[in-house]
Write a protein that binds this DNA or RNA. Structure first.
Length: 423
DNA sequence: TCTGGGGTCCTTTTGCCC
DNA sequence: TCTGGGGCAAAAGGACCC
């Protein structure tokens, strides 16, 4: 039922009326990052192109269908992808362009209905219940979206039309690329049951393995297994959830934008690091970046957590909840550093460190009693001043001395190697 | 053949209070 | 005073998604 070609708004695919009751659309851009990058490089159209970080440790962010034909897919290590497809052109990601096109795409969705739930830059659910009278049935709305987005943004997308979010998502995956698929309510079970369990939302590698050991390979197998068995194997939440999904039951509504629950930043070093001074400097950079994002969104958070990934890929996290929510980079850094010091690592080889702030709320909703001689106050104002400078002169115009590259302009003398903690 | 960075959610453990 | 356990919040780990 997928279709390519000209997009005029014709009758919906399939028999008329089969989309009755299908109120949910899932729109998924086709190879989004690659597609957008090609807008700037049209001469590469038709060739295998891989979007990915330049470093030796990057993974594939996106790949054109020509590259996918060689087995390249997103999240694959770049090393492997280059080996599989040496003739591919590799482009660095252009996040500004992705954000710009994404905003345009979301605007098209919102011209149809306010009930738009973005999942990521390139994907969203739409509840089109209310749009039917103005624009025709859900399938027609889907075709209109496809035509409009290709017309306005120059990239293609696929649309799944169904009575639930989860079936709509499977449908869009099924008709990729550049397609549209309606799964009528009456056909949901026959659509679902032949699919492999891994197609279900929430079934990744580990869960698939567990199910496989139980002899469950298809969604149909899962559907005909007692819920109690699934709960025993997977826990109450996942067990009950999967049992419902296997019969197409999915009550989750389309909910426009949920507020963030955490904000963080992490970095994988290009080689494993065992120098505490470098770790400390990186934690400072990540803390500042995280706090700046909090301030930019007018939010504060109460729990600071760090993540440390060792050379062997084992990963630990540590967290501390503060007496009061904050958006002060210096306080985030001091807390993160305290957590890191408490680990007592003796020059362990570290691959990645991360800083995250959880328990987020709006800054104006956070109770904040000013105390006499309060220390954080000075940092807060200083950092707000830095924010203003960054807006005028560009990010990085002002930053802690320890983050200034000693080899670059600005000189090396007087640069401390170890970030000093707030007193 | 080595595994990014941004997140969410769930489960288990632990510490605390009553 | 000791002990058990319920209830809760925080911490830690892990699976998963894009």
């Amino acid at each position: 039922m997928s279709r390519g070609g000209v997009p005029p708004i014709g009758p919906p695919t399939g028999p008329p009326g089969e989309d009755r009751g299908c109120t949910v659309l899932h729109v998924d851009m086709d190879a989004f990052y690659a597609g957008v990058s090609l807008l700037e490089r049209p001469e590469l159209r038709g060739r295998p192109v891989i979007i990915g970080g330049g470093g030796t440790r990057g993974v594939v962010l996106s790949a054109t269908y020509e590259a996918r034909a060689f087995g390249v897919h997103s999240a694959m290590p770049m090393m492997r992808a280059r080996r599989m497809c040496p003739q591919a052109v590799v482009l660095a990601p252009d996040h500004d362009a992705y954000a710009r096109v994404s905003a345009g795409v979301m605007a098209v969705f919102r011209s149809i209905t306010p009930l738009v739930e973005p999942i990521s830059l390139d994907e969203a659910f739409l509840d089109v219940r209310g749009a039917a009278r103005r624009l025709g049935g859900p399938a027609q709305v889907g075709e209109w979206i496809r035509a409009t987005i290709e017309d306005e943004q120059g990239v293609t997308c696929s649309v799944g039309v169904a009575s639930t979010k989860f079936v709509a998502k499977l449908a869009s995956a099924r008709c990729k690329p550049d397609g549209l698929l309606v799964v009528p309510a009456a056909d949901v079970v026959s659509f679902l049951h032949p699919l492999p369990v891994g197609a279900l939302w929430g079934v990744g590698g580990k869960t698939e393995e567990v199910l496989s050991r139980l002899g469950l390979h298809t969604v149909g197998d899962l559907a005909h297994t007692p819920v109690s068995t699934l709960v025993r194997a997977l826990g109450p939440a996942a067990g009950a959830h999967l049992a419902a999904l296997a019969w197409g039951r999915d009550e989750r509504p389309v909910v426009p934008v949920e507020p963030d629950k955490s904000i963080g930043a992490e970095n994988t070093f290009s080689t494993d690091i065992d120098d505490p001074a470098i770790i400390a400097r990186e934690l400072l950079r990540l803390a500042e970046r995280t706090a700046a994002r909090l301030r930019a969104s007018g939010q504060v958070g109460r729990t600071v957590s760090i993540k440390v990934r060792f050379a062997d890929f084992t990963t630990i996290t540590r967290a501390k909840t503060l007496p009061e929510a904050t958006d002060v980079g210096r306080l985030v850094y001091d807390t993160a550093m305290g957590l890191y010091d408490a680990l007592n690592l003796q020059r362990a080889r570290i691959r990645l460190v991360g800083v995250r702030v959880e328990g987020i709320l709006d800054a104006d909703m956070s109770p904040h009693q000013l105390q006499l001689g309060e220390r954080e106050h000075g940092w807060r104002h200083a950092e707000q001043a830095v924010d203003r400078a960054a807006r005028r002169f560009g990010a990085g115009a002002v930053r802690p001395a320890t983050l200034v590259d000693p080899t670059g302009p600005g000189g090396s003398s007087g640069v401390r190697r170890t970030p000093r903690r707030a007193q």
